[in-house]
Amino acid sequence: MAPGDLSFTAEGLTVLLGGRELVRADSFSLAGGDIAWISAPSGAGKSTFLRGLTRLIDTTGKIYMGDVKSDSIPAHLWRRKVTLLPFPPVPLGDTIEEDLLAPFKLSVRKGDPLPTQALMLDYIERCGLDNYGLKRDTDRLSQGELARLSIVRTLLSEPDVLLLDEPTANVDDVSRELLAELVSAFAKGGRIVIATGHSKPWSSVNRYFEITDGELRERR
């Protein structure tokens, strides 16, 4: 997919939590290659907004990926394309390898080629976990290491739109840069990344948003 081919758009979107309106986004539009960063104080609804985009919670309004409207396909098919990594990260397998392969055990990826050992090793090297190999137990990883592993897992699952909630929380400065490079490489392939966070955004971010008074606005 060439950069720019993909588009991800929300129109008149309202994300509801417990029937209450929490975040509004009147028009929100990203194109392939974009890396968006949403910053807002705690409790302003960053996570809720991402959950709304991936249909983990109910929304009103319209979300499109290309010309596919979110509610025109079953929720699990939408989430396969618009995938969220929730915060805090949790392991999905007992070892690093099992964790990375967990998305491919789901019926939605039935028949998809599994990532090769070489590819998995390459990714864990690029996020700085290479000294562990693939057989390391995931319950021996620190919070920061688990955060990096779960980002690699989500990247390998090959979504079109990648939503990352607080990807740099508990991550040191060196690892932050490694993740930034991984994510930019992913976006350069024509995909879209939307991340949230309190801290300084990655240098590769090209679109900035804020949530103030329950409304998402682009900061130019």
């Binding site: 983990l56 699990h76 098919l77 995938t83 949790v90």
Partner: peptide, 16 residues
């Protein structure tokens, strides 16, 4: 619920 949300967000069907 954290693990379940993570699986769902990867495209798991509710049952899975």
């Amino acid at each position: 619920s954290g693990r379940i949300a993570t699986l769902l967000a990867l495209g798991a069907k509710p049952r899975e």
